[in-house]
Amino acid sequence: MNRALSVAWLAFVWVLLWGSFTLLTVVGGVLVGYVVTAVWRPGEMQGRLPVRPLALLRLVGFLARDIVVSSAAVSWQTLRFGPRTRGAVLELPLLSSSDRVVAIVAGAYSLSPGTLVLQIDLRESRWYIYVVGPRDPADVETARRAALGVQRRVLAAFGTPEEHRTARELEAR
């Protein structure tokens, strides 16, 4: 089942690469997908993720808005402070034990401008992220809250109900 999905995805990318939707490119894509998944076995999956379409849609919308808002923020830092721009390295609780959810949150952090995952400590369940912009402890707390909000939104879409609840409690604190 998972392999069929991988093959379908690879075939889709193949068709996009060719830029034409014909029988030849589709069949070629499926063939390439089968060969690739036969040579490189996809990693073990740890069961299905709970996916909530509405929360997922909200997450995508949030990320789309976030990339615009935070691009403007990074540009502002560049123009206003330039060489005197400062940053912070924050420690955040990692609330999910699923590798895939961790990967999605890390992607979300890295995609939104101004934040970057430096280190993931799975044993201690901690993230370490770099944030550009904070200049005093109050800014740091604002950034921390924003980062927790990103994690909360991902957990709303993919996390277990308990993880989502913990995330909300942490953010409200």
Partner: peptide
């Protein structure tokens, strides 16, 4: 103009990490 701002950030920002923000993120947008 976003790419230009990214390039400007690459020149003006002070550290590897902050420069990476400018180089990768406004660039993405």
């Amino acid at each position: 103009s976003q790419c230009l701002l990214g390039a400007l950030g690459l020149v003006r920002l002070p550290s590897v990490l902050s420069r990476m923000q400018a180089a990768t993120k406004p660039q993405t947008l």
